[in-house]
C-alpha cells in the first residue's frame, strides 16, 4: 500500500528518506555496471507485475512481489524498487514525491530481509523445506510491509489511527497468503527453467 503525499509528519518522512538513502547507497555500491541492465529490466518487470490484478473472492489485488524481488536482487532491491516507485509517482501520481523515501523503505527493506532468508534455504535439496521457506519469503515480505505502513500511520497521526492501522494489517492478510503462494510457484518455476537466475543455486543438485 502506498502512503500518499501530505499524510505523514516531518519526522516520519525524514526518517524514511534517510533510511532509503542508506539502502540506496548500499544497493548502488553492490550494483556494478555489468549488473545494471539486469537490475533495470527486472525492475521494469516488477513495474508491469504491479499492474496485474489477481482475483481474491469478489475483490482483486495487484501483485507486489517484493519477496521475489529481494530473492533475485538482494540489496539491489532498494534501487530497483525506488526507480519503480518514482516512475509510478510521476506517471500515475501513485504514492508521491515527499513520501517516496517512506514508501521505498516500507517495500524494499522487507524485500532485502526476506531475500536473504530465502537465499539461505534455496540450496536445500528437500522440496518441502524449499516450498515452506519460499512461502514465508513472499508472505513475510508483505506482512513486514503492512506492519511498516501501519507503524508509519500511527507514528504520524497518533493513536487516532489505531483502528485504521489494524485494518491495514487485516487487509494485508489475504494478500500475504496469495503472495506467498505466487512466490512459491514463481521461484520453483525459475529453479526448474533457469536456476542460474537465483544467486547461489547454480550448482545445486536438481
Amino acid at each position: 500500500m502506498h502512503i500518499s503525499e501530505g499524510v505523514l509528519s516531518a519526522p516520519v518522512l525524514g526518517g524514511g528518506a534517510a533510511l532509503t538513502f542508506a539502502g540506496l547507497a548500499i544497493g548502488l555500491r553492490k550494483m556494478d555496471y555489468e549488473k545494471l541492465p539486469e537490475v533495470a529490466v527486472l525492475s521494469s518487470v516488477f513495474f508491469i507485475a504491479s499492474l496485474i490484478h489477481v482475483p481474491i473472492g469478489p475483490s482483486a489485488a495487484h501483485l507486489i512481489l517484493n519477496g521475489i524481488c529481494g530473492a533475485l536482487l538482494g540489496w539491489m532491491a532498494f534501487p530497483a524498487i525506488f526507480v519503480g516507485l518514482t516512475l509510478q509517482a510521476i506517471l500515475f501520481e501513485f504514492g508521491g514525491l515527499t513520501s517516496l523515501g517512506v514508501n521505498t523503505f516500507n517495500m524494499a527493506f522487507p524485500a532485502v530481509v526476506m531475500g536473504y532468508f530465502c537465499r539461505h534455504f534455496l540450496k536445500s535439496p528437500s522440496v518441502p523445506v524449499r516450498v515452506v521457506s519460499e512461502f514465508i519469503t513472499g508472505a513475510g515480505a508483505i506482512l513486514m510491509s503492512g506492519l511498516l505502513v501501519a507503524a508509519c500511520l500511527v507514528l504520524a497521526l497518533g493513536e487516532s489511527m489505531d483502528s485504521a492501522a489494524k485494518l491495514v494489517i487485516l487487509a494485508h492478510i489475504p494478500i500475504m497468503i496469495i503472495e506467498g503462494l505466487i512466490t512459491v510457484f514463481v521461484i520453483e518455476f525459475i529453479l526448474k527453467v533457469q536456476p542460474e537466475m537465483l544467486p547461489g543455486t547454480f550448482n545445486a543438485s536438481r
Binding site: P37, L181, I182
Partner: peptide, 29 residues
C-alpha cells in the same frame, strides 16, 4: 477465478516474464 489454478497460471506468467527479461538483459549488456 479465486483458485489455485489461477494463481499458478499467473505465477508462471510472472516467472516467464522474469526469465525472458533476465535473458534480454544479458543481450542488452
Amino acid at each position: 477465478k479465486t483458485n489455485m489454478h489461477t494463481y499458478r497460471a499467473y505465477s508462471y506468467l510472472v516467472g516467464m516474464l522474469l526469465i525472458r527479461s533476465f535473458n534480454r538483459s544479458k543481450r542488452i549488456l
